[in-house]
């Protein structure tokens, strides 16, 4: 993992390309398992599509909607704008 600053997913602007850096320990283990099943694994690139009313991210061409309580437990790092 790079040494870029880690931000909570809930605080990242719409349109940002990001990479999932880590799951917060406060995240429920079952919910974490569910996120992994949706493909949200550490190091994987995502794009933030929406932050309201829920956080919506694009993960491998699939849109995943996350309630803010979950999005705030995901730490991410921003990728350069030109990242694929």
């Amino acid at each position: 993992m790079s040494n870029r600053e880690h931000l909570r997913l809930i605080g990242v602007p719409v349109g940002s390309k990001i990479r999932l850096a880590e799951f917060d320990p406060a995240l429920d283990p079952l919910q974490r398992e569910q996120l992994l099943a949706y493909g949200l694994s550490v190091g994987h690139p995502l794009e933030v599509l929406q932050q309201s009313p829920l956080t919506v991210v694009l993960c491998d061409h699939v849109e995943i909607a996350l309630e803010h309580a979950v999005a705030s437990d995901l730490w991410v790092e921003k990728l350069p704008r030109h990242a694929p």
Binding site: L35, V62, I64
Partner: peptide
Amino acid sequence: RIPLVTEL
């Protein structure tokens, strides 16, 4: 309550 995580 379980917070929502869902595929669209």
